[in-house]
């Protein structure tokens, strides 16, 4: 067999594999959207869930998902940013940083159910936070931190070394170079990483089942005092998210329209994550343009 035919066969095989992957993806997306979108309505997106009757919505779960995501990001982003800056801009390559990197790597491959059980034992039981948004947000921080740190570190790596030299040679301190030259240049790519990791966090269920809980008490959307138990902003209330809701309906849902609600919720989840992804690309490009031409 000559090298030309070999090449053709290789290309054919690669096309086949790539096509297969795309096909699976399209089939999954298609199935979820086709069976889910007919359930979508304003009522479905805003009404509270019903345990035994038809016609429940996912309004509370949807809100919980976003609120939890927001809190988790609020906690994990500054830590991840600091860790990434330290690791990439300051730390020397030695056994300590190698150990930290390995630890991050391992933490990022931890099954999320393990993170959830750890969160249950530590935050829910030991720290007595109970099944609450706060416990969930902490658990998600553990889940999210390694991935976010890695992604921010990668963003910093894309900024050319000549930029750092340029800053330092101008008489900027290391800190000034990082905050005034490197970070602004890296913002679009950092933002993309944040939004993509937000997508992952948004769809996370296992880490939340034992931390944020599986109940979604009705909320009073007129009450924005975070200390009231029925206020949406109260971080100490249990909060079932959309992803947990899907899991729960499918394992123990007893409402008559469980199947429809599950399909609808799945479609909402997938659509939200698709929106995150497209938003990430769009905002990243926009921001890069804006930042680079002042």
């Amino acid at each position: 067999m000559n090298s030309k035919t070999q090449n053709k066969m290789a290309i054919g095989a690669l096309y086949g594999i790539a096509g297969f992957v795309v096909l699976i993806l399209l089939a999954l997306l298609g199935y979820i959207l086709i069976s889910g979108t007919p359930q979508l309505s304003w009522h479905f997106l805003t009404a509270p869930a019903k345990a035994f009757l038809k016609g429940g919505g996912v309004g509370v779960q949807l809100f919980n998902s976003f609120y939890l995501l927001f809190l988790a990001m609020l906690i994990s982003f500054p830590i991840a940013l600091g860790a990434a800056i330290y690791l990439y801009e300051y730390a020397k390559n030695n056994w300590l940083t190698t150990t930290i990197r390995t630890a991050i790597e391992i933490l990022s491959s931890l099954p999320s159910v393990v993170v959830g059980l750890f969160g249950f034992l530590f935050f829910v039981v030991k720290l007595r936070l109970g099944f609450s948004i706060l416990s969930g947000a902490f658990a998600l921080t553990f889940f999210n931190l390694p991935l976010l740190t890695r992604s921010i570190e990668d963003s910093l790596r894309t900024i050319s070394e000549t930029q750092r030299e340029g800053g330092l040679a101008l008489g900027l301190s290391r800190w000034e170079t990082v905050t005034k030259v490197i970070l602004p240049a890296a913002v679009p790519s950092i933002l993309t990483g944040v939004i993509l990791s937000a997508g992952r966090v948004f769809g996370e269920a296992a880490a939340l089942i034992y931390t944020a809980g599986q109940s979604a008490p009705a909320l009073n959307f007129m009450d924005w005092n975070p200390f009231n138990i029925s206020s949406p902003l109260n971080p100490m209330r249990p909060a079932e998210t959309l992803a947990v809701h899907i899991w729960k309906i499918n394992s123990e849902g007893i409402m008559p329209d469980a199947k429809a609600i599950s399909s609808g919720s799945s479609a909402v989840l997938v659509l939200a994550i698709l929106i995150f992804n497209f938003a990430a690309r769009y905002l990243g490009k926009r921001l890069y343009k804006r930042l680079t031409s002042a």
Partner: peptide
């Protein structure tokens, strides 16, 4: 070093403007 580099500036082989105006 910060003060030194203010008084002894440097231009590099590869033009390295910052990605700003």
């Amino acid at each position: 070093t910060v003060q030194i580099r203010k008084e002894i500036g440097m231009v590099f082989q590869q033009p390295n403007p910052f990605p700003f105006s």
